[in-house]
């Protein structure tokens, strides 16, 4: 790549420069937007146009976080929520994919279960909250169950459709070489669905946070969702806003990780 650089024409250099400028101005605008929002928020609450009691303010959020950190509670709450989310995310992804494999394998089972899956998908899972608490108990288990329920149906449906989309010609090719169903699954259908799998991971990153926070709203004694609910109940908007901010950052980091994985997988796409 470096060798070619010398041979670039003036026009091409200009073109490359334009791309760089474009990228840079977008980034600057993005940063400015953030600074403007934070600054305006701080300013308006400082001069009293807006009531910091109702909408908090950036400085108060930071103070709140520092206080939590000093008490040693910040990372405790983050840890609880992160644990619930990751476990829920993993179980839902693995289990959902396994169910999809079983449904791919048996056409008959797929036909039989189809209406039930459609209903399960349409059902707002939060409605099952009381049932989950009674069955699993009001604790971490219930939160993780909620998280799994929210992720698993969409995982199964997306993976199943990815498996079924596999090219018929490629399956015939495998069969003409004497492949059995298991070989077709492992050597063709699953690797073929890898890109879709990464998309499912991306969806599940978002969904698992939704599930966990919903679960925490219902039953928790700790975690970011708990802090938000608690903060709301005692009218401490600083706590609510600060916790939401932390949640934002955590979800972003998790999304970035999946993004890295995606880059690796997409390398050899047709």
């Amino acid at each position: 790549m470096k060798k070619n650089k010398i041979n670039y024409s003036k026009e091409h250099k200009k073109y490359l420069k334009q791309i760089k400028i474009d990228k840079f101005t977008t980034l600057v605008a993005q940063v400015l937007l953030l600074v403007a929002i934070v600054g305006l928020w701080e300013l308006l609450t400082y001069v009293g146009v807006l009531d910091a009691f109702f909408i908090s303010s950036p400085s108060r959020m930071i103070n709140e976080l520092v206080e939590l950190f000093k008490d040693g509670m910040l990372f405790y709450h983050i840890g609880v929520t992160l644990y619930e989310t990751l476990i829920g995310f993993l179980i839902a992804t693995v289990l959902g994919t396994l169910i999809a494999i079983i449904l791919w394998w048996s056409r008959k089972l797929r036909k039989i279960l189809e209406p039930y899956i459609v209903i399960l998908n349409a059902l707002p899972k939060i409605a099952l909250g009381p049932v989950i608490i009674i069955w699993v108990g009001a604790g971490t288990g219930a939160i993780i169950t909620m998280c799994i329920l929210i992720c698993i149906v969409i995982t199964t449906l997306s993976m199943l459709s990815a498996f079924l989309e596999c090219d018929e010609d490629k399956i015939s090719l495998m069969r003409s070489m004497g492949a059995n169903k298991f070989q077709i699954l492992v050597k063709l259908v699953i690797p073929n669905a890898l890109t879709e799998f990464v998309s499912v991971l991306k969806i599940n990153v978002g969904m698992s946070w939704v599930g966990t926070i919903m679960g925490e709203y219902l039953v928790s004694k700790a975690g970011l969702g708990y802090l938000i609910v608690y903060g709301g109940q005692v009218f401490q908007l600083d706590l609510v806003m600060a916790s939401t901010l932390v949640l934002c950052i955590l979800a972003c980091v998790m999304y970035l990780f999946v993004g890295l994985l995606e880059k690796k997988v997409r390398k050899h796409k047709e």
Partner: peptide, 18 residues
């Protein structure tokens, strides 16, 4: 039978991209 060795070529090459 299933074990008879047959070579099949299709319209598209059907190479696996991965």
């Amino acid at each position: 039978t299933k074990d008879t060795s047959i070579g099949y070529m299709f319209q598209r090459d059907n190479l696996f991209p991965w």
